[in-house]
Write a protein that binds this DNA or RNA. Structure first.
Lengths: 139, 139, 139, 139
DNA sequence: GTGGTCTAGACCACA
DNA sequence: GTGGTCTAGACCACA
């Protein structure tokens, strides 16, 4: 018996993990958006990153190369990789990421049969709950 | 090749794929919530599911067994597996799944530096956009 | 060789061996009830148990996982499995196990045609005999 | 890796199923004790029994042979196997079986840490419960 | 055909 | 070292 992917036909597909190089890019995008990394900052060398993350240097290289294509960073040979992003570009990415987060949320909620109004209500509940937790901690 | 899994230290962690057996459970939960499966319905046999999804029957069995522990289904040896869930239990799962979807959304938005008010605004934008798309289609 | 498993009809059934994973669970339940294992104790790792019992680690894992579902133990990845049971839960299991032992006894005695009064008498005989054996040993 | 029984040492042993030929003997003993089979009755031929129980004829033969050794039955070549047991012998078996049932029960209860008095009390509970169930059914 | 148990073993994350 | 997931496949009872 085998359950090979090669037969073709109407197989169901399981969600795979997001590729590591994309996870690396996402991580940097978040740092940029949160201001933890700013224009001109030097980021980890590919080798350093690969060691810290215990991942394949080639994977890191792919991530860095794509970030360069996206105009997020610039690599100077012999010196390293530096943040290099225009403020408007940053704002664009911020909007893009927020958009995909919320769109995913809405589409999943609708797939569960929730109406728009229910989604609003549930969002409020979560926001209020989060506040109460903080308040509790303060007390 | 390995990249120092044995060195110890503060490695970064990447998101892994959700285990297949849990993806199977999630899929059934969604079908239950959306009413595509109802009390008494026979679900795919373990072998059928394994063939369709091209996965190992043992993996499917684990999913089905856990669904039985969760009181979602009942299994009759030699006959198959049947939906068996109390309406209140169903409502509970619906709330649970909705909660985790929205909580994930909120925590990611906050990690991107969005305030609660901004989250509300962006949600509205997405909801309105969705409607416009529908309207556009109609026209 | 086969003896007509495919003919259908009213075959007699023989008792099968209790599944190994259930025997493992029973063993642990007994140790908990007798106080040989207490709250917080680390139990054998899955591999250790499998080696000692010369069984497959997967079988042990199934037993441990079900014990976790029953809230008898808690598992910490990379560390091991630990007893974690509330006293009331322990008392429940004690009652449950005692109940099934005595119910089995009573049903078998009745199947042999013994009346309730005869069962009581025979129980007394066995209890008294047991005591005499002890007394004999002392002498 | 293998988990072979051939290494020797302090392996735990799991309970195996009671051998089928003994289960066959037990079944006949019970029928004799309950009076469902009496002196002179013809029992199933070995071939018939093997078919009904879907078991190996050799297994049935072993059971019948041992029953003959125990003086429970007699086989007449060309005619079949017949119950052939003295009333005192029957009474002996009855006592023997009852004894082993109750001894097993007592030893298991003591292994669970129950005192003799507790065993008596629990027996009463089960006997009383059984009666109530019957009463409920009548109503 | 259905589900249930078990073995054997690969590969992984976590510590 | 720990547990977690998954595959592959044998063999079984039940219908």
């Amino acid at each position: 018996m085998h359950y090979g992917k090669d037969i073709g036909g109407d197989a169901m597909d399981f969600d795979l993990a997001r590729p590591i190089y994309q996870q690396i890019i996402d991580e940097y995008k978040k740092k940029l958006i949160r201001g933890e990394l700013r224009q001109g900052d030097k980021i980890l060398s590919q080798r350093e990153y690969a060691e810290k993350a215990r991942t394949n240097p080639n994977t890191v290289q792919r991530a860095y190369r794509e970030m360069e294509n996206m105009k997020l960073v610039e690599t100077v040979r012999g010196q390293g990789t530096f943040v290099c992003i225009a403020p408007e570009q940053l704002e664009l990415i911020r909007n893009e990421m927020a958009g995909s987060v919320i769109e995913l949320c809405v589409s999943e909620m609708k797939a569960l049969g929730f109406t728009e109004q229910e989604i609003r209500v549930r969002l409020e509940q979560v926001l209020v709950n989060a506040k109460e937790v903080i308040t509790d901690d303060r007390v």
